[in-house]
Amino acid sequence: MSCHSSQILIVEDEERLAAFIDKGLTKQGFTTAIAEDGEKALRIAREDGFDLMLLDLGLPVVNGWGVLKELRSQGEVRPIIIVTACKDEQERIFALRSGATDYITKPFRFKDLLECIQTHLTGS
C-alpha cells in the first residue's frame, strides 16, 4: 500500500502550525483535512474518515484526550499520533496507554513527523 493519497486529519487549533503541517503533507502527496477543535475532529472522523490522525491535546470545545477516548471507545483502530507541546513523560505514557499510537512533542522537525506518519501508515 502506497502512503500517497492517504487521508490525514490534522487536529490543531494553532492556525500557523496546522497550515505548516498541511502544506508539508500535501507536498508529499497526502490528502489532508484540518479540524481546529475536538468536536469538528470527531465529526470529520465519523463522516469522512481518515487513515491517520495528528491530534493536538490542547483543543477548544473537546480536548485531545476527549477525542482520543471517544474514538477508541467506538472501536477506532486507525493510527492517532498525539502532537503536543507537553514534554511530560507521565503524560506520554498515559497517552500511549489511552490508545495513542505515537506521541510527538512540539517543536518538531517536519522530517521527523513525516517519518512517524509513514511508519504508522505502512504498519511497519
Rank of each mutant, 00 (worst) to 15 (best):
residue 14 E to Y: 10
residue 46 R to V: 05
residue 6 S to W: 08
residue 110 F to H: 01
residue 57 L to D: 11
residue 95 A to L: 14
residue 22 D to R: 07
residue 88 D to M: 12
residue 57 L to T: 09
residue 12 E to Q: 10
residue 44 I to Q: 06
residue 107 P to W: 09
residue 19 A to Y: 00
residue 7 Q to N: 07
residue 106 K to F: 03
residue 43 R to M: 09
residue 90 Q to A: 07
residue 80 I to E: 03
residue 78 R to S: 11
residue 70 E to S: 15
residue 25 L to G: 02
residue 34 I to D: 02
residue 2 S to Y: 03
residue 83 V to N: 09
residue 119 T to P: 00
residue 70 E to T: 15
residue 75 G to Y: 11
residue 71 L to H: 07
residue 93 I to K: 15
residue 41 A to P: 04
residue 17 L to G: 00
residue 81 I to S: 10
residue 22 D to I: 01
residue 108 F to W: 03
residue 124 S to I: 02
residue 96 L to R: 14
residue 105 T to S: 08
residue 105 T to D: 07
residue 55 L to R: 05
residue 59 L to F: 08
residue 66 G to S: 12
residue 106 K to C: 00
residue 50 F to G: 03
residue 6 S to F: 07
residue 86 C to D: 15
residue 83 V to F: 09
residue 92 R to E: 14
residue 97 R to S: 01
residue 34 I to T: 12
residue 4 H to A: 06
residue 102 D to K: 13
residue 36 E to N: 14
residue 104 I to K: 07
residue 46 R to Y: 00
residue 1 M to W: 03
residue 102 D to I: 03
residue 59 L to C: 13
residue 43 R to E: 13
residue 107 P to C: 04
residue 116 C to I: 02
residue 78 R to V: 02
residue 118 Q to I: 08
residue 34 I to L: 06
residue 26 T to S: 01
residue 85 A to E: 02
residue 13 D to P: 14
residue 20 F to C: 00
residue 20 F to G: 00
residue 10 I to Q: 02
residue 42 L to Y: 04
residue 77 V to N: 15
residue 9 L to T: 01
residue 109 R to D: 10
residue 85 A to C: 03
residue 82 I to P: 13
residue 93 I to Q: 13
residue 97 R to W: 00
residue 49 G to I: 05
residue 62 V to R: 15
residue 119 T to H: 08
residue 84 T to W: 11
residue 85 A to R: 11
residue 64 G to I: 12
residue 110 F to G: 00
residue 6 S to L: 08
residue 88 D to F: 08
residue 101 T to E: 13
residue 82 I to H: 10
residue 72 R to Y: 04
residue 8 I to P: 09
residue 80 I to Y: 04
residue 50 F to C: 09
residue 2 S to V: 10
residue 91 E to C: 07
residue 80 I to L: 09
residue 74 Q to D: 15
residue 102 D to F: 09
residue 81 I to W: 15
residue 101 T to N: 12
residue 27 K to L: 03
residue 123 G to M: 12
residue 21 I to Q: 06
residue 84 T to M: 08
residue 61 V to Q: 13
residue 37 D to W: 06
residue 117 I to V: 12
residue 81 I to D: 11
residue 108 F to S: 01
residue 47 E to W: 01
residue 90 Q to H: 08
residue 54 L to S: 01
residue 101 T to Y: 13
residue 29 G to Y: 01
residue 2 S to D: 13
residue 51 D to I: 07
residue 58 G to E: 09
residue 61 V to D: 09
residue 45 A to K: 10
residue 104 I to S: 03
residue 50 F to I: 00
residue 57 L to W: 13
residue 29 G to K: 03
residue 109 R to V: 11
residue 64 G to N: 12
residue 84 T to D: 05
residue 88 D to I: 14
residue 85 A to N: 10
residue 12 E to F: 04
residue 97 R to M: 02
residue 56 D to R: 14
residue 20 F to R: 08
residue 64 G to V: 15
residue 66 G to T: 11
residue 110 F to Q: 02
residue 46 R to D: 07
residue 77 V to C: 12
residue 4 H to G: 00
residue 116 C to D: 06
residue 6 S to M: 14
